[in-house]
Design a protein around this nucleic acid. Structure first.
Lengths: 205, 205
DNA sequence: CCGTTAACGAAACTGGAGTCCCGTTATGAG
DNA sequence: CTCATAACGGGACTCCAGTTTCGTTAACGG
């Protein structure tokens, strides 16, 4: 009886074992940088959808193309923007909306997965970019209103301010284990509003 | 001869075709939310590394565990922090470092892929979180110095300020097609510094 | 330097993802 | 309503990722 399994390489970690590890890690980096992450099973999706798997393979072919179509679908369902009368209030409403979405177990996992999928395929990435462009454009007017009120400098890049609200929440979702709570949302909104008022998002300077 | 392929479903898009699409998209969302994104071929990695594929399967087993090990390796190689004497200068140095990394084709693709991999597996996610914790902790002292100089409020969350610098750059990498240029880095640093000085990153308030 | 055995790797095997074939269903034009 | 055919779906087939087996190589304690 031989026990190697998960702890193989722990007893004699030097020499060949170390060289193998280095070579494999190098190759992993290369492979990931080149192909990215490969797709999920379409047969399983057909089963869940109670649809012939031939149909799924014929119409979409790969998971990445399927996800691109899903993003197209998601982009069509838009949520109404709320107006509060102040930049901070509007950004906070936006931040809370994003926070609720990412904190929801199913939605949060879905957004993570969709972003991961876009990592592997150019068409899917394009669909993801279009999705966020639409969402950002939907909220940008609140920054324009702040410009009109004289709250922020004239030539502020309105889209960049909206992105600045979401960025910390997505960064936390992807790179940290901490939960996306309301405090994080409010902090993101406050930071973006403060920086915008101070002229940190001037365009093309 | 039958032509269906990619444009199947375009001639008769109503009725059954539409129902199939809805069911499949629903199932795709469910599958992604549950399993996330599945792994890449280990046999290919063994070939690249010029190592027996049995060895790779025995020592790592899955791509996600392999990526977790890669992250452990990446966490060990740290870059020295530069000190400029002002919060904005230090944050700008950090932002430029992140910017150069993400803008580099291989490194940028690698980071995208690693984040995608962490999306699918708890252990890999933990390894990713540890990686970023280390990086953040490495730069946090520059914010502490700014506190000591009286540049930012006493009870500022120093880690959160560092994260605020990276967040917009990663957000752009993942959700937008635009390149990560120096202007973006400088804007991220300026926004974070401004918000920090204004007390947007106070801890636990 | 020697011996034990951890770790590697070639080759044969297997299960299921992805493809192909062809009959069935039902859309939408006339 | 009718008909041509777009689109679906069951089932057989293929091929390769992942597993198992077993012989070979070399790490490291003495």
């Amino acid at each position: 009886m031989r026990f190697e399994g998960a702890d193989s390489g722990t007893v004699r970690p030097g020499g060949r074992t170390a060289r193998v590890r280095a070579a494999v890690l190098q190759a992993t980096g290369d492979a990931l940088a080149e192909h990215g992450f490969a797709p999920l099973d379409l047969a399983d999706i057909a089963r869940r959808a109670e649809v012939g798997k031939t149909t799924v393979y014929r119409r979409w072919g790969t998971v990445t193309r399927l996800v691109a179509d899903l993003l197209l679908d998601m982009a069509e369902q838009s949520l109404p923007r709320t107006e509060t009368g102040s930049l901070f209030g509007d950004l906070k409403a936006n931040a809370r909306l994003v926070q609720r979405t990412l904190a929801d177990p199913r939605q949060g996992a879905l957004f993570k997965a969709v972003i991961a999928a876009a990592t592997c395929d150019a068409k899917t990435a394009e669909a993801l970019h279009r999705f966020y462009d639409i969402r950002v454009k939907e909220w940008a007017p609140c920054v324009q209103q702040a410009i009109d009120r004289g709250e922020v400098p004239e030539d502020t890049d309105v889209h960049e301010v909206i992105r600045a609200v979401s960025a910390p929440l997505y960064y936390r979702l992807l790179t940290s284990g901490e939960s996306i709570d309301e405090a994080a949302a409010d902090r993101a909104a406050e930071a973006a509003a403060t920086a915008a008022r101070a002229g940190a998002y001037l365009r093309g300077v």
